[in-house]
C-alpha cells in the first residue's frame, strides 16, 4: 500500500494518564486510518477517550504506546519521535476546530484567520486577502471587522473553521464542533465540513456524541472505554 495513501494512520495507540495506582488508560490499542477527502466521525459516550484520541493525533498529547503517522511523516512511535518539530507540523498540516470556538477575543474575525497565516510566514497583505476570501466563502464577508464577542455562535464557529482551513491543512481535527450550536447551525457546519473534505481533499476527523449529526460521514468509529469497538459506513448509521 502506498505510504501516502492515508492522511492519518494510527496503530495500536495507547494513552495512559498518570502512573501506578492512579493510572488511567484513556485509549487502548486504537488503530485507524483516514484518507484525504474523507469525513470521519468518532462517536462515544463521555469519558470514553474521544478527545484523548484526537489530541494524540493532533500532536497535543504524547501517546504512551503505538505509532501516529500524519501525511506520511511518523510523528510518534512509542512516544514522540525525536527531531520532529511538533509546532511546525501543527501549523502546516493540521487544523483544529473546538466545541467552544476558541477565537482570540481581542482579534477581529479577519485577524483571527490572519494570525494562523502569519505564524506560517505569510505576509500581512497575502494573509489579509486570503482571510477575506475564506471568510467570504463562508458567508462572513460582512463580519470581517467584528470581534468574536459580537458574533453569533454559528458565525464564530465558521470563523474558527476558516482559521482551521487557512493553511490548507492535510488534516482537520474537530472536537464536538456542533455541541454549542442549535440543530440548524450544527447541520450547516457539518455540511460545510463535508464540502471542505471533498473540495480541499483534506482528511477530517470529527469527535461527537451528538447523534443528530451523524449523517453525512463517510465512516464512523464507535469508541467505548478507550477502545474502538466498531467501525461502520455512514449508510449503516441511520
Amino acid at each position: 500500500m502506498d505510504k501516502n495513501m492515508y492522511a492519518i494512520e494510527v496503530e495500536r495507540l495507547t494513552k495512559i494518564y498518570g502512573k501506578g495506582e492512579t493510572a488511567v488508560t484513556a485509549i487502548a490499542d486504537a488503530t485507524l486510518q483516514v484518507k484525504p477527502g474523507e469525513l470521519v466521525a468518532i462517536l462515544g459516550p463521555s469519558g470514553s477517550g474521544k478527545t484523548t484520541l484526537l489530541t494524540c493525533i493532533g500532536l497535543i498529547n504524547e501517546p504512551t504506546h503505538g505509532t501516529v503517522v500524519i501525511d506520511g511523516t511518523t510523528v510518534a512511535d512509542e512516544g514522540w519521535k525525536s527531531g520532529i518539530d511538533l509546532k511546525r507540523m501543527r501549523r502546516e498540516k493540521l487544523g483544529f476546530i473546538f466545541q467552544a470556538h476558541n477565537l482570540i477575543p481581542f482579534l477581529t474575525a479577519q485577524e483571527n484567520v490572519m494570525i494562523a497565516l502569519e505564524i506560517n510566514n505569510m505576509t500581512k497583505n497575502e494573509a489579509k486577502s486570503r482571510a477575506t476570501e475564506l471568510l467570504t466563502s463562508l458567508n462572513l464577508g460582512h463580519r470581517l471587522g467584528n470581534y468574536p464577542s459580537a458574533l453569533s455562535g454559528g458565525e464564530a464557529q465558521r470563523v474558527a473553521i476558516a482559521r482551521a482551513l487557512a493553511n490548507k491543512p492535510r488534516v482537520i481535527l474537530a472536537d464536538e464542533p456542533t455541541a454549542a450550536l442549535d440543530t440548524e447551525n450544527g447541520k450547516n457546519v457539518m455540511a460545510l465540513l463535508k464540502k471542505l473534505a471533498v473540495e480541499n481533499h483534506s482528511a477530517i476527523l470529527v469527535v461527537t456524541h451528538d447523534h443528530r449529526m451523524v449523517e453525512g460521514f463517510d465512516r464512523i468509529f464507535q469508541v467505548s472505554d478507550g477502545r474502538i469497538i466498531d467501525e461502520k459506513n455512514s449508510i449503516d448509521a441511520g
Partner: peptide, 11 residues
C-alpha cells in the same frame, strides 16, 4: 489565548 496560539502552531 496562549494555549490556542500554541495549538495552531505559534512559535
Amino acid at each position: 489565548v496562549i494555549a490556542t496560539l500554541k495549538l495552531i502552531g505559534s512559535q
